[in-house]
């Protein structure tokens, strides 16, 4: 379940990190890309798992071990029971592969794998044990949630999510440099996967307590509350701290400028 490292090492020099990730990208494309992308469609499960195993050996095994058993001193967790959903979430959001053990896996801009490669990796990890599968659309799709359902989703959101992710999903602080990320625009599928697999420090919210229908309601609420028009610029949804900042800068600032204009003498002849 614990996909990301809880290592306590601090950030290495940024240039080094950049070089490493560049190297990784290059390595992945050189080693794997031609082999799988052309033949992924229509192959049998066994082939998919085999392709995934290859990908895993190249991209993941250095930390998680050749058989995904994890490596404690790297902070890399055992992956035998995390399931396909966790792989899909971590790799698709570019949290994984991590270039370096950090405090927290942070999402990158774009995954370095193709859809087929992600499927193969997920199929391989899923074949190792029991864990949630990649969800079907009917598990997470919020389009059938009624207006009342979305309001109920809001109640669930404020009870279970806003403590870390803030009242509209703008994110928040956790101890020791960990942050709860912004989730205003997270795709529904990834919200579902995050709830079920508990990435990083986030707890699991399993179906026994929050069934799929409730997850859909929460997703519908996040979508609708962020799509609704605001009553002015929303200051990043950060609450009273940002408001106080603007009261001083925009309010007192502009009024002092006016006061200076009022009290200075105009040009003299």
């Amino acid at each position: 379940m614990r996909f990301l490292t809880s290592g306590r090492r601090h950030k290495a020099a940024r240039p080094l990190l950049l070089l490493l990730s560049l190297f990784l990208v290059g390595a992945v494309y050189a080693a794997v890309s031609p082999a799988t992308s052309s033949s992924a469609e229509g192959v049998a499960d066994a082939q998919l798992v085999a392709a995934g195993k290859n990908l895993f050996a190249v991209n993941c095994a250095s930390c998680h071990g050749l058989n995904a058993e994890g490596l404690a001193q790297q902070g890399a967790p055992n992956l035998t029971n995390v399931g396909a959903a966790a792989v899909d979430f971590q790799v698709r959001t570019r949290r994984m592969p991590m270039a370096n053990p950090l405090t927290q896996a942070v999402p990158g801009s774009k995954t370095i794998f193709t859809d087929d490669e992600i499927k193969a990796l997920a199929a391989y990890v899923a074949s190792l044990g029991n864990g949630p599968a990649i969800p079907d659309q009917n598990q997470y799709d919020p389009s059938n949630v009624s207006a009342e359902g979305a309001a109920r989703g809001g109640d669930l959101f404020r009870t279970n999510c806003s403590a870390c992710h803030n009242f509209k999903g703008a994110g928040g602080a956790l101890p020791n440099g960990v942050v709860a990320p912004r989730i205003e625009n997270t795709p529904p599928e990834q919200v579902w996967e995050a709830l079920r697999t508990g990435p990083g420090q986030m707890p699991v919210f399993a179906a026994g307590a929050i069934p799929d229908q409730d997850v859909q309601k929460v997703i519908a609420y996040i979508k609708q509350v962020n799509a609704a028009p605001s009553a002015g610029l929303s200051l990043g949804g950060l609450g009273p701290v940002a408001e106080g900042f603007w009261a001083w800068v925009a309010g007192i600032g502009s009024l002092v400028l006016f006061a200076i204009w009022i009290a200075t003498r105009g040009t003299r002849a």
């Binding site: 109640d155 404020r158 806003s162 403590a163 009242f167 703008a170 928040g172 609450g239 009273p240 701290v241």
Partner: peptide, 14 residues
């Protein structure tokens, strides 16, 4: 709701 809370719970600036 006494069991809910949000990240960034702050009072007004003063």
């Amino acid at each position: 709701n006494p069991s809910q809370v949000t990240a960034g719970s702050q009072p007004d600036w003063y």
